[in-house]
Amino acid sequence: MNLARKLACVVVVFVCAVSLAANWLAPVGYAKQFREAPGAPPSHEHWLGTDEVGRDRFARVLYGTRISLLLAPAAALVSTLLAALVGGLAGYLGGIWLRLARGFTDLFLSLPWLFLLITVRAVLPLNVSPLTSVLITFLILGLLGWAAAARVLSTSADALRNSDFVLQARASGLHGPRLFLIHVLPNLKPVLYAQFWISIPVFILSEANLGILGLGVAEPLPSWGSLLRELEGLMSFREEPWRLVPLVLLIVVMTSFQMLLSKEEVTA
């Protein structure tokens, strides 16, 4: 493991640990409104100041990190599994299945999924707790975000199907699910990893966009998405630099995630 990967590992572990310790590090909680100090700059009481309604920004960053770091990978896992199922199998089976799967993923990719999400959110029940709303949001993202990854996986699986070692395995009498599980799937692993890691920041940013459209995490629960919304209307970086902390954290964590990928996974 080179130094960069070690450093990335430390950053991810540190951020995860700190966010998990939010209850102890920020006992005021993410929802309490200090109405006498809305939009306050950093101080001894509020290390990162307060947001527009007086909530402690440090607490919100910690809790938001916890939610986003837990649920964005969960959504990425759902979408990668779906992609592996559709793309991997179609590529392995080839022929009509591959054409069908590609047609289906193309159709799915061409759908205006943002509008699809709006429609899905509009029909959901209104009286759900903020925690349920965040679960719903990321689940929807996971269920709708598989198509691009499936396309990549189908191409990789198709290439594997025609590779020498798979042909040799076939010649040795290996067929069906066993061939897929023993020879194809392990070789798809780098692509799967890459798709998984790529999906995480995509889902975090998607959640931020959804927040603007009203489909994100319900108040008062924070997420990186809702924290990034605070940057709306920020005219200058010098104005209130502490408001950039969620953005910096997002960049650092996402970069660390990318650095954790092995060379093979990156090239995949």
Partner: peptide, 14 residues
């Protein structure tokens, strides 16, 4: 109280 923000057409429909 649960705060729900919806896109405007969905809100008006509701």
């Amino acid at each position: 109280v649960n705060v729900v923000t919806l896109d405007f057409p969905s809100l008006i429909e509701r």
